[in-house]
Amino acid sequence: MHHLLRTPRPGHDDRGAATTQLVLTVPALLILALLIVQFALAWHARHLAHYTAERALAAARVQHGTAAQGQARGLRSLAQLGSRVLTSPSVTVRRTPTQATVRVHGTASGAVERITTPAGGPS
């Protein structure tokens, strides 16, 4: 019975290649996932502000509507959404005899991601 022995060629040792690939790939995938989450949060905050502005404008632009009614409707819409994505939001409504304008301003914020120990403290 013959056993074929493979002699490694110099400079072609594959040991550790999988570990190296894993060390390079996993952080890149984690960064990509975090960027996707941040983009989704920014999109969500923008969507909330746009929805609020539409609701406030609808209340302010009716025939006998007022800027105060538009602002109240915008703030109610934000409260109904119960979002914690937009902090310190403000709704500003201006109404003239021919034009109604709504501006929604808020700050998007979220918790900082960090690695913790099983006990809950920072590592």
Rank of each mutant, 00 (worst) to 15 (best):
A33R: 07
R15W: 09
A49L: 04
V37H: 10
I36P: 00
Q38N: 13
T25E: 08
A40G: 00
T19R: 07
T52G: 03
T20Q: 02
L30F: 14
L29M: 14
Q38R: 09
A59N: 04
P27I: 12
T25Q: 08
T25Y: 01
F39S: 11
H47W: 09
V26L: 15
V26T: 13
V62S: 06
A45M: 02
P27T: 02
Q38M: 11
A60H: 02
P27G: 01
L34D: 05
L22H: 07
R15S: 11
A40I: 10
I36H: 07
H47F: 11
T52D: 04
A42S: 03
Q38Y: 07
P27K: 09
A49P: 01
L32D: 08
H50V: 13
I31L: 15
A58L: 10
H44V: 02
H50Q: 14
A53V: 06
H50L: 15
A60M: 06
R61K: 05
E54H: 10
L41V: 13
A60D: 08
H47S: 15
L34V: 11
A45K: 01
R15G: 10
V37Y: 11
L34A: 15
Q38D: 09
A49D: 02
V23E: 00
I36D: 01
A56P: 03
T20P: 06
T52E: 04
L57K: 01
L48S: 07
L32P: 03
I36A: 15
A49G: 09
V37L: 14
F39Y: 08
L24A: 14
A45Q: 01
V26C: 08
P27A: 08
Y51C: 10
G16P: 05
V26F: 14
A60V: 05
G16R: 09
L34E: 12
V23G: 07
I36M: 14
I36L: 15
E54K: 00
R46G: 12
A60Y: 06
A33L: 15
H44S: 10
R61C: 03
I36S: 15
A28F: 12
Y51F: 12
L57Y: 02
L48M: 06
